[in-house]
C-alpha cells in the first residue's frame, strides 16, 4: 500500500492535536508526540500485547486499549477523565493485591513502573483484600534473581526471550488466577536454563521481578528515576537501565 503525505491525519488527545501516520496505534502516536499514556505490558520495542489494560482510554463512548487501537482521523481520545483514571486505578489495585508488592521493602522501589503508574493515577490504597499468594524466589542463576512475588504477567520477558534472544526461556502456564510465569529448563529453575545476563529478556521487566545480582541499591532510594521525576515525563524504566 502506498502511503502519501496527505494520508497523515490527526486526532484530539485530552484537548491536544496529535498527528499520526496510518498504521500507528493511539499509543504510538501519543508517545511520538511526547505525550504520555500509562502502560505496563507495552514497550515500543515489541509488538503490542494489550493485556494489562492500564493504557485504557475513552474513544467515542467506548473504552479501548491505546496500545492496540489504531489511530483514526478526527477521533477524540480521553485519557485523563476521572472515569478513565478510575478504571486504571481499579486495574492497578487488582494487580497489587494479586501479587506481593511491598514497596517499602522492595529493591526496585523508585524505579518500578507499577509503583510509578499507581502514583500517576492517584492510587492511594489497594482497596481490595490482599491475596498474599505463596510464591517462590529463584536465586539459582549466578547473575540474576527472579522474585515471582512481583511478577505482573506482562509477558515482556516472554516476548524478549522468544522474539529478540531466540531462546524461549520464559512462558506463561496455568489459567486465570492460577496463571504464572514459568522457566524452560529441566528443573524449571533459571540457573538451569539458557538465560544470560546479556539477554534482552534480562532488561525489560517493568517491575522488580527480574533483578541483577551483586549490585543492589547502587542508586539510593529517594534519588531514583521516578523519585526525581514522574513517569509521565521520563517514561519506561527499561529505557533508562536503572535498577
Amino acid at each position: 500500500m502506498k502511503v502519501s503525505l496527505s494520508s497523515r491525519g490527526s486526532f484530539r488527545f485530552d484537548g491536544k492535536e496529535i498527528p499520526f501516520t496510518p498504521g500507528q496505534t493511539i499509543m504510538d502516536a501519543v508517545l511520538a508526540a511526547g505525550e504520555y499514556i500509562p502502560h505496563l505490558c507495552h514497550n515500543p520495542e515489541f509488538a503490542p500485547h494489550g493485556s494489562c489494560r492500564v493504557c485504557v482510554v475513552g474513544v467515542g463512548g467506548r473504552q479501548v486499549s491505546a496500545c492496540t487501537a489504531p489511530a483514526a482521523e478526527g477521533m477524540v481520545v480521553d485519557s485523563s477523565s476521572e472515569e478513565i483514571q478510575g478504571t486504571r486505578r481499579a486495574i492497578l489495585q487488582m494487580l497489587f493485591v494479586e501479587g506481593n508488592h511491598i514497596c517499602p521493602a522492595c529493591e526496585k522501589s523508585g524505579a518500578c513502573q507499577l509503583q510509578a503508574v499507581a502514583y500517576y493515577t492517584g492510587m492511594l490504597a489497594p482497596h481490595f483484600t490482599h491475596f498474599f499468594p505463596r510464591r517462590e524466589v529463584d536465586a539459582s542463576h549466578p547473575d540474576f534473581i527472579i522474585d515471582f512475588n512481583r511478577c505482573i504477567l506482562c509477558e515482556l520477558c516472554v516476548r524478549a526471550s522468544r522474539d529478540w534472544d531466540g531462546k524461549r526461556v520464559f512462558g506463561i502456564s496455568g489459567r486465570g488466577l492460577a496463571s504464572h510465569l514459568v522457566i524452560d529448563s529441566p528443573t524449571g529453575r533459571l540457573g538451569d536454563s539458557s538465560f544470560a545476563a546479556t539477554d534482552k529478556a534480562a532488561h525489560v521487566c517493568p517491575v522488580g521481578a527480574i533483578l541483577p545480582k551483586h549490585r543492589g541499591y547502587e542508586v539510593p532510594i529517594g534519588e531514583r528515576l521516578y523519585d526525581r521525576e514522574p513517569i509521565s515525563l521520563v517514561g519506561d524504566v527499561a529505557a533508562h537501565e536503572e535498577a
Partner: peptide, 11 residues
C-alpha cells in the same frame, strides 16, 4: 468465571 477466565482480556 474465576475458574474459566484466561487471565487477560484483549479486544
Amino acid at each position: 468465571f474465576a475458574h474459566e477466565s484466561c487471565g487477560s482480556a484483549r479486544s
